[in-house]
Design a protein around this nucleic acid. Sequence first.
DNA 1: CTTGACCCCGTACTGTAGTCCGGGGTTTAG
DNA 2: CTAAACCCCGGACTACAGTACGGGGTCAAG
Lengths: 137, 137
Amino acid sequence: MDMKSLTIGRLAKQAGVNLETVRFYERRGLLPKPPRTASGYRLFPEDAASRLRFIRRAQELGFSLTEIGELLSLRVSRRTTSADIRTRAKAKIADIEAKIRSLESIKKTLRKLTRVCDGCAPVAECPILESLDREDA
Amino acid sequence: MDMKSLTIGRLAKQAGVNLETVRFYERRGLLPKPPRTASGYRLFPEDAASRLRFIRRAQELGFSLTEIGELLSLRVSRRTTSADIRTRAKAKIADIEAKIRSLESIKKTLRKLTRVCDGCAPVAECPILESLDREDA
DNA sequence: CTTGACCCCGTACTGTAGTCCGGGGTTTAG
DNA sequence: CTAAACCCCGGACTACAGTACGGGGTCAAG
């Protein structure tokens, strides 16, 4: 077995995901179908682990597996022109900037809250509602 | 019927969510149980709509309903001391900052990608994998 | 005083994202 | 050579977050 390849079990351990999740992502097309040994064992390239970690982190940021697939497919090839990619990448950037703004807004509110706590002033109402309200995502 | 109150249907429409979702969130404790008319109709205060919108936006940022409940309950009262709140708010701020960093990292990669596209250089591999890899969330 | 729009409730169903099972073959360490 | 550890596959199961259903009561307009 090639030193530079990973069996599904090793890959799963390296990326910190369940082995079945790897198969599931492969079925979903998020992981390219790996070559197999004569006996049918998958042999993943080493960078499959970064791909898995990317998927996990993108999920924590609120992207669905479908959206993650779109992010992962952003690259220029014979099927896709660079103008097309540029358009799609710009749309993704806009999405991401909106997410960042929302997070900044929640963060600001939380920081204000900690300052209130420092001052020991009691806060009866929930101040977090102040954030995120005047925006159209 | 009080002018300042909303029936469940109006509230749902104002917040842009399904009526059943409102009931679901109430059951989950994300929306305070509203007073009822004599015949049992819910009468939500007007600010329930902002609360609903907050929940929706926080979900898009990758927070689960449980986490959102924690965010919404961040306030000082007789049950919770301000020191306690400060600690919890600071933890949430750290979570949020980590999310922002991850998003910035993806954004940077996407921007690099659009620049490559502008230069019309073909990109065979998927460059988005460069982002998010060297970090421990 | 009825008809359509709205509300009540419990229960069942759906979609997404996994996770587990179990019967089988393979690889590797002793 | 065998046992443990690993892999294969299809299919069933789970958790989370809703969404739909259906039988019934309520409210406002005509």
